[in-house]
């Protein structure tokens, strides 16, 4: 029983340490790598929560299917529109065109 509690407190310590790490990392000029780094840390935190707190590591069958399906479909929902937006030839209004525009954007 104490072993199971130890996993909870160890996970908590790991999560707080990861929080400190990601906050610190945000102030390091990583350029384009900043977002992947932040998401990587968040994913590790998520793994701790899902595997230990939500006990996915001990789960079977439908639980694993539900978790896997949620993750897969989330990737589809984020990935497929990204395929479109990363390849658009024309954007309606971008920051680049805004920098050069004379009139301020219309306000309501």
């Amino acid at each position: 029983m104490s072993g199971r509690f130890r996993s909870v407190w160890l996970s908590w310590a790991a999560l707080v340490a990861l929080l400190a790490a990601t906050t610190g990392l945000a102030y390091v000029p990583l350029g384009r790598a900043a977002l992947p780094a932040a998401l990587a840390v968040a994913s590790v935190k998520a793994a701790v929560i899902v595997l230990v707190f939500m006990e996915l590591a001990r789960a079977t069958g439908l639980t694993r299917i539900a978790a896997g399906a949620g993750l897969f479909w989330l990737c589809v929902l984020l990935g497929m529109p990204a395929i479109d937006y990363l390849n658009r030839a024309a954007r309606p209004v971008t920051e680049r065109t805004l920098y050069t525009s004379v009139s301020p954007p219309p306000r309501r």
Partner: peptide
């Protein structure tokens, strides 16, 4: 779940998509 963009062929979606 991977085919919905065929509703948007003439909408201004990128050709690659």
């Amino acid at each position: 779940f991977l085919v919905w963009g065929h509703h948007m062929f003439v909408s201004g979606q990128s050709l690659f998509a």
